[in-house]
Nucleic acid binder design. Structure first.
Lengths: 139, 139
DNA sequence: TACCTAATTGATAATCGTTTTCATTTAAGG
DNA sequence: CCTTAAATGAAAACGATTATCAATTAGGTA
C-alpha cells in the first residue's frame, strides 16, 4: 500500500513529511471512500498535527499522479479512494457502510460501439459505478 | 416540454409564477446540461427579474418531483438537464459543447448479475455516463 | 372584480467545502 | 551541520449553496 505510494512521491521530488505519510497511510488503510475531512481526522490519529489544508494538498498530488480515484457518488463534498488496480476499472459501493470493491471486467465495448454508430459520438471515456449493499450490511 | 412540466407543478399545488415559468422554459429549451448560474442567465432573458435563489428553489422542486436529471460529470458546480425519457436511461455527453443525448438500452443486467454473485453485493442502482465528442464538434 | 391568505420572492447574511496567501518551519542533499 | 527550496498551518478569500425574513403576489373565494 504505502510501500507503493511513497517511492513514487519521492521519485517525483516530493518530500516525505510526517504529515504526508500520515495522510497516505490513512487513505491506504481504508477500503472505503473518504472525504477530505474524514481523512484529516484519520490522519490525525497517526500524527496529531495534520491540517485540513495539507490533506487537500496531498490529495491534489495523489490525484495528479493518478494514485487515487475520485468517487462519483453524490454528496456535498468529494470523496476519494486509493487506486488499487492499475488497469482501467470501476467500483461497487456499499450504500450503507461505504465499502468499495473494484472490478475490471467491464465489457462496455459492444454498447459503446453501438451507441457511437447510432449517435455519431466519438467516445472518449465512460463512467460506471454500481451502488448496492455489501454482504456485511445485508447481515 | 414545458407543456408537460407546468401541469405537474400545478397538480402538486405549486404556484405558476412568471419566474418559475422562465426557469422551466429555460431548462426545457436546452439540450445541454446547465449549471444553476447558467440557468439563471437564460431565464433572465425571458423574465429579467429572476434571482439565483429562485433558480435553486425551482431546481429543488423539479428534482423532488423527478423531472430533472443531475449530471455526474465533474466540475465545481452541479449541472442539470430536463428528464426527457420517462424510463430508466443514461446520457452521452459531449466534452466540448455539452450536448446531451439520451439512451435507454443499457444492458448491464448480465454484468450486474455476475458481479452480484462474485461479490455478494445486492445491487440497488448504477450510474453510467459516456463522455465523447458529438458529430458537430468533430467537424 | 376585489379581497384574503398562504406561498413565493429577492436581498442579505450564513454556511460549507475548497483554495490562496504568507510568514515560519523543515526535509534532504551537499 | 548548513543551506535552500519545498512544505506547513493559520487566516483570509473564494465560490456554491442554503437559511432568514420582510415585502410581494398567485390563485382561490366572497
Amino acid at each position: 500500500m504505502q510501500k507503493d505510494i511513497l517511492p513514487v512521491l519521492k521519485r517525483y521530488g516530493y518530500k516525505l513529511t510526517p504529515q504526508r505519510r500520515a495522510v497516505i497511510s490513512a487513505i491506504a488503510g481504508s477500503s472505503n471512500h473518504v472525504t477530505p475531512a474524514e481523512l484529516c481526522e484519520r490522519a490525525r490519529s497517526e500524527h496529531p498535527k495534520v491540517s485540513l489544508v495539507t490533506v487537500y494538498r496531498t490529495l491534489k498530488i495523489l490525484s495528479d499522479l493518478g494514485l487515487i480515484c475520485e468517487m462519483h457518488t453524490e454528496g456535498i463534498s468529494h470523496s476519494y479512494l486509493l487506486r488499487r488496480p492499475d488497469e482501467h476499472h470501476h467500483h461497487i459501493v456499499c450504500s450503507d457502510c461505504g465499502l468499495v470493491v473494484d472490478f475490471t471486467e467491464c465489457d462496455l465495448s459492444g454498447l459503446e460501439r453501438q451507441l457511437s454508430s447510432e449517435t455519431g459520438f466519438e467516445m472518449e471515456h465512460h463512467l460506471l459505478e454500481f451502488i448496492g449493499r455489501c454482504p456485511g450490511c445485508r447481515r
